[in-house]
Computed example of a mutant assay.
Amino acid sequence: MKRFLAAAAALTLLTACGSSDGDDAAEAGQPTTVRVGFSAWPGWFPWQVAQEQGLFAKNGVTVELKYFDSYTDSLTALSTGNLDANSQTLNDTLSSVSGGAKQTVVLVNDNSTGNDQIIARPGIDSVADLKGKTVAVEQGTVDHYLLLLALQKAGLSEQDVTVKALLTDAAAAAFLAGQVDAVGAFAPFTTTALGLAGSKAIATSADFPGAIPDHLVFEADFVKDHPKEVQAMVDTWFDTLAWIKDNPAAAVGIMAKKGGVSDADYKSYDAGTTIFTREQNLAAFESGQTPANLDFQAKSIAKFLVDAKLVDEEPPLDGLLDATFVKAAT
Rank of each mutant, 00 (worst) to 15 (best):
S87P: 06
G100Q: 02
G81S: 06
R121I: 13
V106K: 10
A187P: 11
A193V: 10
G132Q: 04
V105K: 07
A201N: 10
F186P: 15
A177R: 12
T191G: 13
D116H: 11
G178V: 02
V137L: 04
L75I: 11
D169V: 15
V163Q: 03
F186D: 15
T93Q: 10
F189S: 12
T168Y: 14
S157A: 07
L147N: 01
G99M: 06
T191R: 11
S126A: 06
A173R: 13
V106C: 08
A173S: 13
F189A: 11
L107C: 08
T113P: 03
E138K: 14
T93A: 12
V142I: 11
L151G: 04
V161M: 07
D116R: 12
G155E: 03
A136S: 09
Y145A: 12
L148F: 14
Q117Y: 01
A187E: 14
A203K: 00
E138W: 15
A177I: 11
D181T: 08
L167K: 14
N109D: 13
S87T: 11
I119V: 05
D116P: 01
N111V: 13
D84C: 10
A182R: 05
I124F: 04
A193C: 05
D160T: 06
Q159K: 12
L83D: 09
T141C: 14
D143S: 15
A177Y: 12
T93I: 00
A171K: 06
V127K: 00
L130C: 00
E138Q: 13
G123Y: 06
K131P: 02
T76N: 12
L176C: 05
